[in-house]
């Protein structure tokens, strides 16, 4: 085991400020969000450039260099549907602080992203679904095994570099599926697999003041089940306090009275 790994989700082209910054190659808004997330304790930064069909390679390289040059080679999750952009990003990526993460592969159309990660000695986020929402824990396990096999065929160190995503689902509307997610994480942990996922999904559509409560409670339950990483908003104070407290409770970090300030 190791300390829980947070992947900061706030550099995302769905945000108008970030989209505009990416369109105009304006570093300031991106650097500001990166700093806020790292100051709050994010380990990895997710860099989501969207589909980026026309200028993806150039944009990803610009983003990777921008973040790593300004933040001591911060490790990055390269997040786009454009494979060539991910490869381009990895070409300029500095591994001093950790391998790049390919975000993401699945057991459907995006399964080739496993090959991409294997060929580039990267970590891959492997989403246990093919299309739509998996119906059960069994189905997730089947997708997981399919992707695992693919990764191992391609020579990946599956226990280290394949981070399986159980697919977090929104509670409003899919309340009855939440236990499946926890059971899947528990099963990943039993197999010795690393895991991650877009945790904030669960509280979509909830009032703003409720989301940190739901997110941090779900996260604590997931970490207890064996989750090793998550894509989160590190500027959610309650959530980061939960991560730090979980690390202390699981003896992944030595407690000190000032632990929340670290």
């Amino acid at each position: 085991m190791a300390k829980f790994i947070t992947i900061g989700e706030r550099i995302h082209c769905i945000s108008p400020v970030i989209r505009e910054a990416m369109n105009s190659k304006n570093p300031e808004p991106i650097l500001k969000r990166a700093k806020e997330q790292l100051d709050a304790g994010a380990v990895y930064l997710d860099l989501n450039i969207g589909p980026a069909e026309s200028n993806g390679e150039d944009l990803m390289q610009w983003g990777v260099k921008l973040l790593q040059e300004n933040f001591d080679n911060v490790p990055i999750a390269l997040d786009t549907a454009n494979k060539k952009a991910i490869e381009a990003g990895i070409r300029v990526y500095n591994r001093a602080k950790g391998k790049p993460i390919v975000n993401s592969a699945d057991a459907g159309e995006r399964i080739e992203n496993i090959d991409l990660a294997a060929a580039n000695d990267a970590i891959v986020l492997a989403l246990c679904s093919a299309e739509g929402v998996p119906g059960s824990v069994d189905e997730r396990q089947a997708f997981c095994m399919e992707m695992l096999e693919r990764g191992m065929e391609k020579g990946m160190d599956a226990a280290e570099d394949m981070w399986f995503d159980p697919l977090f689902l929104v509670i409003k509307g899919m309340q009855d599926k939440q236990k499946d997610v926890l059971d899947t994480i528990r099963w990943f942990a039993e197999q010795g697999f690393k895991s991650t996922g877009g945790l904030s999904n669960i509280s979509n559509g909830m009032p703003k003041h409720i989301r940190p409560i739901m997110d941090s409670t779900m996260l604590a339950m997931c970490i207890s089940a064996g989750l090793t990483s998550a894509i989160v908003n590190p500027n959610d104070l309650r959530l980061m306090e939960t991560v730090k407290s979980c690390d202390a409770i699981l003896n992944e970090t030595l407690f000190a009275d000032s632990y929340l300030e670290l």
């Binding site: 030595l254 407690f255 000190a256 009275d257 000032s258 300030e261 670290l262």
Partner: peptide
């Protein structure tokens, strides 16, 4: 725990 705290 105090060792860490004092350093902090």
């Amino acid at each position: 725990n105090l060792a860490k705290q004092l350093n902090v």
